[in-house]
Design a protein around this nucleic acid. Structure first.
Lengths: 113, 113
DNA sequence: GCCATACTTAACGTATAGGTTAAATGTTTC
DNA sequence: GAAACATTTAACCTATACGTTAAGTATGGC
């Protein structure tokens, strides 16, 4: 398991542009160019935001032809952000645990739309 | 409902000292002095961290004699951080939804301030 | 009222964040 | 291999972050 990079992760989430990027990526992968469109700031500025998100492991990058495709890394959010939420709210943690038990006992896994 | 202050909230969580403060407060209220003890940085530095946490509504402050008592505000974490986690992880969102249904149906509500 | 206590605010220095434009990089296409 | 494309890196500027020390502000006890 790679280092948590909690600082990087939360710092990355502390900027509205980066949160918007993550939001858009939650709907599916996008190229750097597609991400840059829709922001009023320059391409290099967006590129730096993407680098920060990548360093925080909140997104992953892969090359495809001459494009760079970015995809959301949901695991990082679970491991870092989720960890903190659970720590701070005992009810959430308890609820998630008991829910998991309950669901696993009473409902066979089915496909969900 | 006060403004979410998402930027402030995540920015506050992006610093290790502030996360440690929140961590300690999760065990119970503490005075500013009690918080400052245990950090190698100066009191004024800790005081500023506390102000940031207060502005982000992650903690609440009240005066008691000549002390200032700080307490964790769990609601802010749920509203801002929790919201994002749920957005990014469809399974969590689903779990929370079905959990809410399940709990509301099977457990009578308990008094909570 | 006066002094100690328990802090916060002010003033200041250095490092980092986040923006810009210009130049560099790696990939296809001709 | 030269040109066009997609994007990053470099160089630079200004604002903000976070630390320090010194001064200010309530509150409680004598």
């Amino acid at each position: 398991m790679p280092a948590p990079r909690t600082d990087l992760c939360f710092h990355a989430l502390g900027d509205g542009v980066r949160r918007t990027i993550l939001d858009r990526l939650s709907a599916g992968e996008l190229s750097a160019g597609a991400i840059a469109e829709g922001f009023d700031i320059s391409w290099p500025a967006v590129s730096r935001h993407l680098r920060l998100l990548k360093e925080a492991r909140l997104v992953e990058e892969r090359r495809e032809g001459r494009q760079r495709i970015y995809a959301l890394n949901r695991g990082t959010l679970q491991q870092t952000v989720g960890h903190w939420v659970a720590l701070f709210d005992a009810r959430w943690a308890d609820n998630l645990r008991s829910l998991k038990d309950h669901v696993e006992r009473s409902q066979p896994p089915r496909g969900r739309p």
